[in-house]
């Protein structure tokens, strides 16, 4: 287990270097001029461009810039300052990460709730009306784009019915001082309902099928027959014997998909105007703000690597066959 951890961490470091370098190269290959963002965009005047370029060292060779970035990150844990607005990228991410975490983890809870209830129920009653309805849900969830779903939700629940806010984020720990914005746990929850469901739909759909298949497969396992032969009631069989085994592969998938989901968060954040990592990424790209883009990429990479590691350890913990191997 220890050797395994060491190997995983070394891999993660290598992967991290590759990803950040590739981002660097991609960004500098394009005809981007980060200085332009700070000099008035379309009509930047030469004097300003020159000034800003030198200020950020944008005229240095790529490897020098990469080294500067890497050195600053590793030695000072500093992701630098936005080319577009001069703000500390560390701070930007510190503010954005909780928003994205709220979305992704809250969304994951909802998607697992939907996937488990629908998946298990339709596995227990295959071909029933509910099973077929779940299939329709799956099709919609997989085919519909989150932005489209988001706009529909906003319009129906926010504008027409007025049940929820249309968009925007409310801070869990209270509104920013002096802003007059909503804040606190309830407002946070209230503002996140639509984003959560929008975000969860695609994965809920995928997971309904997966949970259904796994549960059906596990129901046919010999040890389930053993449990029945012992005289265990169906409910106990489902909870104690079927689910734990059926959900093992789901946990692995969940670990991998959280990373993928982070990408999906970009759309949900955009449509609901949540100031999370995804939105900062999009804005950063539009503004040629490489420092912010790289900051988000670095953070997301580390978060995903870390998360996968946690899931691996968790998986070993719930599956004794791996733990003791």
């Amino acid at each position: 287990m220890f050797r395994y951890l060491i190997r995983r961490i070394l891999w993660a470091i290598l992967l991290f270097i590759i990803i950040t370098f590739v981002t660097f190269v991609i960004f500098f290959m394009g005809p981007n001029d980060p200085a332009r963002a700070q000099c008035g965009g379309d009509q930047a005047r030469p004097a300003c461009l020159k000034l800003v370029t030198e200020h950020y060292g944008l005229n240095k060779p790529l490897y020098v810039q990469y080294w500067r970035f890497f050195d600053r990150l590793v030695v000072h844990q500093n992701l630098g300052y936005s080319y577009a607005n001069g703000s500390s990228v560390n701070q930007t991410i510190a503010k954005a990460a909780p928003v994205t975490a709220s979305l992704v983890f809250g969304g994951a809870v909802i998607w697992m709730m939907i996937a488990l209830s629908l998946g298990v129920y339709s596995a227990l009653r295959p071909r029933s009306l509910l099973d077929r309805t779940a299939m329709v849900f799956v099709l919609i969830g997989i085919s519909a784009h989150p932005v489209w779903i988001g706009l529909i939700f906003e319009y129906v629940f926010g504008v027409k019915l007025g049940w929820t806010p249309i968009a925007n984020y409310a801070n869990f720990f209270g509104a920013p001082a002096g802003s007059g914005l909503p804040g606190g746990p309830w407002q946070w929850f209230y503002h996140m309902i639509l984003p959560w469901f929008t975000f969860a739909l695609l994965f809920a759909a995928l997971y309904v099928r997966m949970v259904r298949a796994n549960v059906m497969e596990t129901l046919n396992e010999d040890f389930v027959r053993t449990a029945r032969a012992k005289g265990a009631p169906e409910r106990r069989i489902l909870v104690s014997h079927v689910l734990r085994n059926a959900l093992l592969p789901v946990v692995t998938m969940l670990g991998m998909d959280i990373g993928v989901a982070l990408g999906g968060a970009v759309f949900t954040e955009t449509v609901y105007q949540l100031p999370g990592l995804g939105q900062n990424l999009v804005v950063g790209i539009q503004a040629n703000d490489f420092a912010t883009v790289q900051g988000v990429v670095v953070f997301a990479t580390v978060a995903i690597l870390l998360f996968n590691l946690i899931v691996d350890v968790l998986y070993a913990w719930i599956d004794p066959r791996i733990r003791l191997a």
Binding site: E221, D222, F223, R225, T226, A227, R228, A229, K230, G231, A232, P233, S240, H241, R244, N245, L248, I318, D319, P320, R321
Partner: peptide, 25 residues
């Protein structure tokens, strides 16, 4: 029937490798 199963009548199966739940002691 559940009360009879495993109490009055019990059963053992062919494949001991798969008949026990792998995640419980």
């Amino acid at each position: 029937l559940r009360e009879i199963r495993g109490n009055d009548i019990s059963m053992i199966f062919q494949d001991p490798m798969t008949s026990l739940n792998p995640v419980h002691t």
